[in-house]
Amino acid sequence: MSRSGGAVVEKTSPVLRTHEAFYDAIERGDLDLMTSLWLPGDDTVCVHPGSEPIRGTSSIMRSFAMLMASVGYIQFILTDVTVTHRGGIAIVSCTENVLSEADGEEPTVFAGGRGAATDVLVETPTGWKLWSHHSGPVMEG
Rank of each mutant, 00 (worst) to 15 (best):
residue 106 E to S: 13
residue 89 I to K: 09
residue 82 T to K: 14
residue 89 I to T: 15
residue 121 L to D: 02
residue 6 G to C: 06
residue 41 G to C: 05
residue 110 F to H: 12
residue 133 H to D: 07
residue 83 V to K: 08
residue 51 S to E: 14
residue 129 K to S: 03
residue 85 H to L: 09
residue 65 A to Q: 13
residue 5 G to D: 11
residue 141 G to N: 13
residue 121 L to Y: 08
residue 74 I to P: 04
residue 60 I to G: 00
residue 13 S to V: 08
residue 58 S to E: 13
residue 40 P to I: 01
residue 88 G to Q: 11
residue 51 S to N: 15
residue 134 H to V: 14
residue 124 T to C: 04
residue 93 S to W: 00
residue 78 L to A: 04
residue 60 I to C: 02
residue 71 V to T: 14
residue 73 Y to M: 13
residue 9 V to Q: 00
residue 116 A to H: 14
residue 27 E to I: 04
residue 72 G to A: 08
residue 22 F to I: 06
residue 72 G to P: 09
residue 135 S to P: 00
residue 36 S to W: 00
residue 45 V to C: 14
residue 27 E to Y: 04
residue 133 H to I: 07
residue 23 Y to F: 15
residue 50 G to I: 07
residue 84 T to L: 01
residue 98 V to N: 00
residue 116 A to Y: 15
residue 138 V to T: 05
residue 21 A to I: 02
residue 30 D to R: 07
residue 55 R to D: 02
residue 45 V to Q: 10
residue 63 S to M: 10
residue 87 G to A: 00
residue 99 L to R: 13
residue 20 E to W: 11
residue 89 I to D: 08
residue 4 S to I: 01
residue 120 V to K: 05
residue 135 S to N: 11
residue 102 A to V: 03
residue 7 A to N: 11
residue 29 G to C: 07
residue 40 P to D: 11
residue 8 V to T: 14
residue 79 T to K: 10
residue 28 R to V: 01
residue 70 S to Y: 04
residue 130 L to T: 11
residue 72 G to H: 05
residue 110 F to I: 06
